[in-house]
Design a protein around this nucleic acid. Structure first.
Lengths: 337, 337
DNA sequence: TCTGTTCATCGAACCGGTTCGGGGAAGCTA
DNA sequence: TAGCTTCCCCGAACCGGTTCGATGAACAGA
């Protein structure tokens, strides 16, 4: 069931079979058909490892994402799905690597053992040792998110700064003066997680610009934390009338906390933020939010990576997306005196 | 940066380097150290493709899941994460294959091109052509879910029949007499999707056993469909006082539909079903449900697969899980006259 | 001193593809 | 008919590992 067997049965040499399959040299129509018939009969498919060894390309891309400890959000899921599908369209397989940092064994496997032709990095940090390491090796990679030095890299990302700022302006326009920001967990912020940082930045600056009174919080990635966080918000400043969140997983808990505190959304309290559209439509009332276009991000990341693989010397490219805020049902005019 | 380079610098032959690394033959302590030093200096790691070609094992397992068209649920996400982590513990990488059916190009790549040593099949159907094909080839695979012929296979799964039956009994014990079943989309049921079938089965039989009046529905995997489905339920039988669902993604919509119809959960209407625990805790009121142990399923699937890979002649094994119902806040005694 | 083990190492073959250089046959021109 | 292309195809080398059989040195026992 290898190429030699095909060659023997078709009465040609191994190289002829190879050329017939790859089309890199001309093969007469007759022998091509003869070879094809044998291949169809035996159901032959060339061995991926041998091919990878011979031509130096694995036809596989690595998707590097942090370990599940802090479990995945719906957005990440959509993203993984779209990456896999987009890669399949280019005949690439996707290898998953649960690596948080440069030194991970899994990360070393991908790179050192040449299991993949290129990589897509999720959950980027402002100072990301994985990204830095890859850049240093000139290894083809595309980041999801911008590091602190975005100009030299290949990446796709959301403009979290602009998105949270847009949320603030939306709330300010509705008359809200005292608002809270619910970020991802503190550990992520501390380690320089990009969206947490830039989101916080955009929020803070826009709030200052509009002269708002704000408080910012970090919140665990689960409903219970969201509920506790909301209790804290109302305890710290009962006059708070709105919040902006990046934390998809906590959203259900935030809503529950509001209900528990007797605040009706959106009559007494407005909620908005940056979350996946599908998720925003799941909660009641449906969330007015900047919808994270996870599928598009995944597709674009694959497009960029494939381009980089096909043209090793191409100059860095990137896509910065700023999806608009979708008005749904969770924000309304401020009714506080 | 290949094994020959290491050998040259260490002043030994390539085979000696190989044996020093694998330990399959003894190498003197002195040369071993010499080799190790060169390796550390150069940061050498053996090429995965070459190794795979030589010893016939890729150290990769394939995770076969359906394309994202019908998008992923939280349960699938948790499952993917746990598979990747469990596999990493055994030094296996995970290759994603978005294949719904046997004939998919992606599926053929995995198998025909020998990209993986074994496979885990998600989203199994009662008559599953992928599973049948793999079984015929005696290809090491573990299914998530039982086909119609579970005795001959390797699989891990949930006893959906028992779980939905438990939900029915729970509701019947609370006095509910008219209940609805909200299944996954009709297309999945029609194509023989296992959980949809067995779940429906368990529901129907248990309801008959308890003499309940029931209606069963299929529902799209999104909030809007859930909302529409609930409207249909109350339209078809306004006296319905409870529902059982397998449809995680529709849950938010079902809740919204109930709120819209003025039915308070759990006072006027009870909701229960089979969903991931994390998700059940996200909605308000928190869902009383049989929590899908996605992480455990993933771990067990990898355990079984690795066992099968290590012992090719081992007899088939499986794990059928029946998690208990977690009592939360979405069910209560029937208050209808 | 000779023989028989044991230990450490080497060279060569092999895994299954790809690719390069060369050569025979056919066709064309002079 | 010699000389030159062009078209197909073949054989051999190579990718980077693993593994088997052989070899030589060191050492033991007789």
């Amino acid at each position: 069931m290898n190429i030699g067997e095909i060659a023997k049965r078709a009465g040609v040499s191994r190289s002829t079979v190879s050329y017939a399959l790859s089309g890199k040299r001309s093969v007469s129509e007759e022998t091509r058909r003869k070879i094809q018939r044998v291949i169809d009969e035996l159901g032959y498919r060339p061995n991926a490892s041998a091919r990878a060894l011979a031509n130096g390309r694995t036809s596989t891309i690595g998707l590097v994402f942090p370990p599940a400890g802090n479990h995945y959000t719906g957005m990440q899921l959509d993203f993984i799905g779209s990456v896999v599908e987009a890669a399949a369209a280019f005949d690439y397989d996707v290898l998953l690597s649960p690596s948080g940092v440069d030194s991970d064994r899994s990360f070393q496997r991908l790179l050192g053992e040449r299991r993949v032709d290129g990589a897509i990095l999720m959950e980027i940090r402002l100072e990301d040792d994985r990204a830095a390491h890859l850049a240093e090796l000139d290894f083809p990679a595309v980041a999801i998110g911008r590091t602190a030095h975005p100009e030299r890299g290949w990446w796709v990302g959301l403009d979290h700064t602009a998105l949270t700022a847009a949320c603030v302006h939306h709330l300010a326009d509705l008359g809200h003066r005292r608002i809270a920001f619910v970020n991802r967990p503190e550990q992520l912020l501390r380690t320089g997680y990009e969206s947490a940082h830039r989101g916080l930045d955009g929020f803070t600056k826009a709030a200052a610009e509009r002269g708002l009174t704000v408080r910012t919080y970090c919140c665990g990635d689960d409903a219970a934390s969201g509920q506790a966080c909301l209790a804290r918000i109302l305890h710290d400043d009962p006059a708070t009338t709105a919040l902006v969140t990046l934390n998809e997983a906590a959203l259900g808990g935030l809503y529950r906390g509001l209900a528990q505190a007797g605040r009706h959304v959106p009559r007494d309290f407005s909620v908005t933020g940056v979350v996946a559209g599908r998720w925003a439509e799941t909660v009641t009332p449906q969330l007015t939010a900047a919808d994270v276009p996870a599928e598009e991000l995944g597709r674009l990341a694959v497009d960029l990576l494939v381009e980089r693989l096909d043209h090793p010397d191409a100059p860095p490219r990137h896509h910065l997306l700023t999806p608009p805020i979708s008005l749904r049902a969770s924000t309304g005019p401020c009714t506080a005196s």
